[in-house]
Computed example of a mutant assay.
Amino acid sequence: MRHVRPFALASASLLLAGCGIRGSEVVEAGGPAVADVARQDGMLLFFVGPDGSSIPVVRLADSAPTPAATAKQLAALLHGPTPEEHAAGITTRLPAGSTPVRVEPVPGEKAGSRAGVPKEVRVSVAFAVRPLDAAAVRQLVCTTAHAEDPEGLVEVALTGSDGPLPAATCD
C-alpha cells in the first residue's frame, strides 16, 4: 500500500495542474450567431445585452415570412423584452410601446440571393429615427433583415417621423 500512495499523490497533482492551456480574454468574431431554428419555429427579434451588443431572441410565431409577418415581428420588438428576458439582462434602446409599422419590400432581388428574397426592405415607423443610437438602429435593421431572409442579407431602409436613414445591413 505504501507504493500506491505516492503514485496517487503524483496523479492527483497532475490533475490539479491542468492541461497547460492558459486562460484568455473573449475574442470578438463578428455579429451574433443566428440559428435557422428561428425561421422554423419562431420569430427572431434583436434586443440589447448588458454590454450593449445585439442579442437575438427567438419567440414563437404562427406565420410565414411576408411583409405583414415582418411588421408583426417589428411590433413585437417595439413591445420590448418580456419580464423573463428583462430579468436575464436583455433590454431595448427603442421607444416603448407599440407603434404602427409599415414594411415594403423593394421590387427586385439581391444578386446571388435565393429566389423571393428582396434586395431591400423599407420600414416606416411613427417615431423619430435620427436620434436613435447604433444599438437601436441595429435592433430594427437586424430584426427586419432576418424576418425577410434567414441569413439576414437584406438591406433595410428606415424612415421615421423625422425622415429616412441610409439603408443598412445587419452586421
Rank of each mutant, 00 (worst) to 15 (best):
E28F: 14
A29V: 14
G30I: 04
G31W: 05
P32T: 12
V34W: 14
A35Y: 12
A35Q: 11
V37I: 14
A38D: 14
Q40V: 06
D41L: 11
G42H: 01
G42M: 02
G42Q: 02
V48T: 15
G49Q: 03
P50V: 10
D51T: 13
G52N: 09
S53E: 13
S53K: 15
I55T: 15
P56C: 14
P56H: 09
P56E: 12
P56F: 12
V57D: 02
V57M: 15
V58W: 00
V58R: 03
V58S: 07
V58K: 01
L60G: 15
L60M: 12
A61H: 04
D62M: 12
S63C: 11
P65E: 08
P65N: 05
P65D: 07
A68T: 13
T70H: 01
A71N: 08
Q73P: 02
A75N: 10
L77G: 00
G80V: 06
T82D: 06
P83Y: 15
P83D: 09
E85D: 06
G89H: 05
G89L: 07
I90A: 07
R93Y: 05
L94M: 07
L94P: 01
L94G: 01
P95A: 13
P95D: 14
A96T: 05
G97S: 10
G97M: 07
V101R: 04
V101S: 13
R102W: 04
R102I: 15
V103P: 02
V103W: 00
P105G: 00
P105K: 06
P107D: 03
G108H: 14
E109P: 00
K110L: 13
A111W: 08
S113G: 11
S113L: 13
S113W: 06
R114P: 03
R114N: 11
A115D: 10
G116Y: 02
V117S: 06
V117K: 10
V117G: 08
K119W: 04
E120A: 09
V121F: 00
V121T: 04
R122C: 03
R122D: 05
R122T: 07
V123R: 03
S124Q: 15
S124C: 13
V125F: 04
V125Y: 02
A126N: 09
A126F: 00
F127H: 07
A128H: 09
A128K: 14
V129S: 07
